[in-house]
């Protein structure tokens, strides 16, 4: 199969930014900033961005451009015995996209509901009770029946993913021209709408007022590094795959810097959009802003719809915009996860790429059905916790150690500098060899100790074990099997 290339540099950057920017930029970053020192959080966040985020992007872009293949082959290039790590990275991503697509399906459902503001006066009851049909917490681990509207949305999501990537970088390059700028434009509209509402400045005050004492708390620094690490689509093999489609002579360092800065910029804009309307909600209810602050799906599907219903005019219009924004933010991240998988296996498949991707999307749709059931949210929550808290950090840790100490950060740095708009110095080696492994190692240990001390989320122990260690062990076993079975090298 001929190796494809991006049409131009701008398209590559858009694709990389589209992958990095996801729902977390809107529903995670603002909350993390607010609860970790407000405006003061920006200082550790920028430190983490420049010390870990951008260096890791440079690392993955360099690997992709060097090897011009997916993550397994890139790891094999570093050391043959670590090919499994590449498989493990893309299998983690493949698991995540199965339930990420379900969240996209919720966005589709809510986009339709936006036209009539169907969530009515009580969005919480509507979301958990009617839309998800969520089983009581005591029944966590049961599936219940499939929720048909979610299933339909899931099918639409997978068709959209298929259409986005079936022609590889050609189709991805066309899709990102719309799905990356559009949510940014909508974000600007939502910020303007938000800051012109009464109470908005009070909300923004909670987001931006700095509490510099928080900087003395190590947890705040860990939160900043975690946010940067999870937001950049690092550790899935995505950036390796995307960079593998760069032609020889392409820039690496500046592309990584721009992708990192744009991801952070969009997260910051997300904070402005969210906290301005939270201020309005608090004003309307006559309560303090902290009483209405939420994050995650609760923010997107309960709090934000509540606010949308309260808007003085054009409520449906802004609702439609909001959910189009979530969909377009999420779709690039979703299909980049599938693309990372396809880039890893395309050397080993004998059928046409389009047919293979159709099969992958169909299988992923089927695997996603359990998450579309009445108990699906509980499974989604537990699996996501373990894959991100352990699997992803583990990949990032080993990846930086392998590049830093086995391949040699010096060699990678020189490779990146050769064709880049600006050169990086030895500080990059220090970051890859010491700072990133130490921080990711500390995060891994902290998460491990927390898991031993307390069962996650109050869910049954068996559910934690099955969705956590057992699932990770299965992915590791498959990774080892694939690296043994598929020996065709680079």
């Amino acid at each position: 199969m001929d190796h494809q290339h991006w049409k131009n540099r701008g398209v590559f950057i858009l694709a990389a930014v589209g992958s990095a920017v996801g729902l977390g930029n809107v529903w995670r970053f603002p909350y993390i900033a607010y609860s970790n020192g407000g405006g003061a959080f920006l200082i550790p966040y920028f430190v983490a961005l420049f010390v870990a985020g951008v260096p890791l992007l440079i690392l993955e872009f360099s690997l992709g451009r060097m090897v011009q293949k997916g993550a397994p082959q890139a790891m094999e290039y570093i050391k043959k015995e670590f090919k499994w790590l590449g498989w493990f990275a893309i299998l983690i991503g493949s698991t995540i996209v199965v339930y990420y697509a379900v969240i996209m399906s919720w966005c589709f459902g809510y986009l339709i509901y936006s036209f009539t503001l169907k969530w009515g006066a009580n969005p919480e009851t509507f979301f958990y009770g009617k839309y998800l049909g969520l089983l009581p917490f005591e029944k966590a681990g049961h599936f219940g029946g499939v929720q048909i509207p979610i299933l339909i949305g899931l099918a639409v999501t997978w068709i959209w993913i298929f259409l986005s990537i079936f022609k590889g970088v050609d189709s991805v390059g066309k899709v990102v021209l719309v799905t990356v700028p559009l949510p940014v434009l909508i974000l600007v509209i939502l910020i303007i709408r938000g800051v012109t509402l009464p109470g908005a400045l009070d909300g923004l005050n909670y987001f931006l007022s700095p509490n510099f004492k928080a900087l003395l708390n190590p947890d705040v620094w860990i939160a900043a590094f975690s946010q940067v690490f999870f937001s950049m689509s690092i550790g899935f093999g995505i950036m390796i795959a995307y960079a593998s489609y760069l032609p020889d002579g392409s820039d690496i360092n500046n592309n990584a810097l721009l992708a990192g800065l744009l991801d952070a910029l969009i997260a910051f804009m997300g904070g402005l959009a969210v906290f301005s309307v939270l201020g309005y909600l608090a004003y309307t209810k006559g309560v303090a802003v902290p009483e209405v602050v939420t994050s995650g799906p609760g923010l997107a599907f309960i709090t934000y719809p509540t606010i949308l219903s309260l808007l003085p005019f054009w409520a449906q219009f802004f609702s439609v915009l909001f959910f189009i924004m979530l969909l377009t933010l999420g779709i690039d991240s979703a299909f980049s996860l599938v693309e990372a998988f396809v880039a890893g296996v395309e050397d080993y498949i004998k059928i046409k790429r389009e047919t293979f991707i159709a099969i992958v999307c169909f299988v992923a749709f089927i695997l996603g059905i359990p998450f579309a059931t009445r108990g699906g949210l509980y499974y989604l929550d537990v699996i996501d916790h373990y894959l991100t808290s352990f699997g992803l950090i583990f990949v990032g840790l080993l990846e930086s150690i392998l590049v830093g100490w086995v391949l040699g950060s010096n060699q990678v740095r020189e490779f990146a500098n050769l064709t880049s708009d600006f050169k990086i110095g030895k500080w990059w080696d220090i970051s890859i060899k010491f700072i990133i492994p130490i921080i990711l190692g500390a995060m891994l240990i902290i998460n491990f100790v927390n898991s031993i001390n307390k069962v996650y989320g109050g869910y049954p122990l068996w559910l934690n074990i099955v969705a956590g260690p057992v699932w990770i062990a299965i992915l590791l076993t498959i990774s080892l099997y694939l690296s043994y079975k598929l020996r065709k090298g680079v």
Binding site: G38, G39, L208, S209, N254
Partner: peptide, 30 residues
């Protein structure tokens, strides 16, 4: 909004927007 909040707003905007524009300048100057 407090003075501190305004300062952080300007600080973040300068770093993020300024940094992005500078990066784009580096990319297109050749």
């Amino acid at each position: 909004m407090s003075a501190g909040a305004w300062i952080m707003l300007i600080f973040a905007t300068v770093i993020l927007l300024g940094g992005s524009l500078f990066s784009i300048y580096l990319a297109i100057r050749k």
